[in-house]
Design a protein around this nucleic acid. Structure first.
Lengths: 375, 375
DNA sequence: AGAAACACTGAATCCGGCC
DNA sequence: TGGCCGGATTCAGTGTTTC
């Protein structure tokens, strides 16, 4: 047993692998200080939704309008944040660490308060969703990510970081601060008795898998103060870590309890890895313009010089009164149903015609070293 | 000239397309209020938020003990943030917007203060670096991204968002909140006289290209209070936007000035981007009847023939006892909250079903004389 | 049986001009 | 300035039904 555990040994035993019922601040305050290795926290985001939102097909979006996400304002939210962070800080071992996940609605306030309380940021980590909900009204960018902040208890903490394990998860390349993972749906998404989703914001197990592999060791105690349907507990149990869940809502606790009973601990050997699959990244033609490889106003020529078109600043082409993507304009000029613009169009350099696909290859080469999408 | 500009008109002229020398807070305070369309800010965040931070009055923070010192560091940085954000807020037009870029060292504090001052977050945007600097010691994840926060001046601001242009940059798929772009190196990276990089954190032009295409229009005034080597100005000039740069260090101003002189403005054609449909003139359905394209009494059919309605002489429809506009009747028959009648209803010609939207397009073409109008 | 079409859904600060 | 109302707006994936 390492020195990390000395405080816990001298205190009363922890309620391991259980779901505690009640308010997380009170319950954390009732636990012995400096007894927990890692905290994973998914606090309410304090979304401020106005009216209903409908998809273009007129179906209504099922909003997160639950009571637990309502706060009177920033001051109330900040007070809540201060209190639960302080309670979390007390029970963390000196070398312990914490992850907090959030969106732009709350993550800046949480991050600032983490710093104010003396937590030390190692990284902010971006969960890039491979399948986010689109922006239906075309008024903003697709909100396609969430932010996690990974902190140690203090600057001098000797936190756990399994560098090689994460590198191995990433096909031998150093793990980056942006993680591409799908949202939780399909069979993994828990349903209630009526077939509705049991919790509006269930996190994917893949996310917790990566967190726990990277920043805990087998046998560590992982606490989740906003347990919900228990993703943290399920992955912890599977990976041979101990967990403590805290959840206020009885309905969530019930679903989580059943879920945890179904989970089986893996044997030590198989705790190893889920392999990532390398996919050739899609390169939008717009990037060729943004990167200055071609300039807006420059002309492109078809094979055999039969057609030409001019590049615009937004990556569309205009040729012979037809506007659109490199593929659309190519198809229109050829009178064809479709066209691969990347091989169809060429640019001129020193009298030579060069296919724009070479530019795409160049961009892909620059992007290599990146690994994306598990599953 | 739109109402957006009325405040600027009544004030003294802006120092457009220049680099102002000095402290950005003082200089912004010297500019007329509500005169700028967009601010792009890359504030200092390589500050050690610890020992060597100086107070704004240049007195050294007295390090009593670690924790107090750290708090003093944050407090000083927060004060600086509050002040430059307030100055930026004052010169922004009511419908203006701002981008701030930062890393985990500072972005949480900046984001929280943005919210405190009443700025309204549209998105946080992740610049995912395709070629980041690796983490050499293997103690953390590769810090492979930076965070940008895009805000409007207030919740009610009618901010500029060129949805279609960004979608076009992304080859027809809605632009997401994570942008993959390489860091600035190679020929784009400016060097000083000794061949060293001229600025430690020069931003890539590709990043500014996307920001300016997406959230400004040609002729807009873009201000950068931390101008550095002038990436914002260079891209603004190229894309036909006006800029105001503010920079304290003479060496950076010099490099930026030379750079700007080399930049050439693109012609209007190349700057043009794909327009939103909303910008097209409204065509009342009644015109279709007045012009005899459809006759009163003619029947219209929904997609899939599930519903039909009869055209009346005043351009309203009647179907299944429901009377009203093409939109109202469509919505009523579908039991939907709203309905785009133009795409919902079809008429029959020679056995074929033709959407009435084609008639609207025909009218619009006749109205403008040609297919597309400049800008 | 297999393919194709259709239906449904996800942490969302999601409209704007005219009267 | 509040209310009315025209009409613009979606990506990836899973699961179900139909051909």
């Amino acid at each position: 047993m390492t020195t990390k555990n000395k405080r816990a040994d001298s205190a009363r035993p922890l309620p391991l692998n259980q779901i505690l019922a009640g308010d997380c601040i009170e319950l954390m305050n009732s636990l012995p200080e400096e007894s927990v290795d890692l905290i994973f926290a998914d606090p309410p985001y304090n979304l401020q939704l106005r009216g209903d939102l409908h998809r273009p097909d007129n179906s209504k979006v099922d909003a997160v309008d639950d009571e637990w996400d309502q706060f009177a304002g920033f001051a109330a939210y900040d007070k809540f944040t201060r209190e639960w962070l302080a309670a979390a800080r007390r029970i963390l071992k000196p070398d312990g660490a914490m992850w907090v996940i959030g969106s732009y609605h709350n993550i800046f306030r949480v991050g600032a308060e983490l710093q104010n309380q003396g937590f030390w940021i190692m990284n902010d980590v971006i969960w890039r969703k491979s399948n986010p909900m689109p922006n239906f009204r075309g008024k903003r960018l697709t909100n396609a990510h969430e932010t996690m902040i990974w902190v140690s208890k203090s600057e001098s903490s000797k936190y756990t970081f399994n560098y090689e394990a994460l590198k191995s998860l990433n096909e031998g390349v150093q793990m980056r601060s942006d993680w591409v993972l799908p949202i939780c749906n399909g069979g993994e998404r828990l349903k209630d008795g009526k077939g509705e989703k049991a919790h509006p914001t269930q996190k994917p197990e893949s996310l917790l898998h990566r967190v726990l592999i990277g920043t805990t060791n087998p046998g560590d105690v992982v606490l989740d103060p906003f347990f919900g349907t228990g993703t943290t507990g399920a992955v912890a149990k599977m990976l041979g870590r101990d967990f403590i869940g805290i959840e206020r809502e009885a309905a969530y606790r019930e679903v989580a309890q059943k879920r945890l009973e179904r989970v089986r601990r893996l044997d030590a050997d198989s705790i190893a890895t889920t392999k990532a699959k390398r996919a050739e990244p899609r390169v939008p033609f717009g990037q060729v313009i943004e990167r200055g490889m071609l300039r807006p106003g420059e002309e492109l020529y078809s094979i055999g010089n039969r057609h030409k078109a001019k590049v615009r600043a937004d990556g569309s082409l205009i040729g012979n009164d037809v506007k659109g993507s490199i593929h659309q304009v190519g198809a229109a000029l050829e009178g064809a149903p479709s066209c691969n613009g990347w091989t169809y169009w060429h640019y001129r350099r020193e009298g030579k015609m060069i296919p724009i696909d070479l530019l795409r290859q160049q961009i892909r080469a620059e992007m290599s070293g990146e690994v994306s999408r598990p599953n």
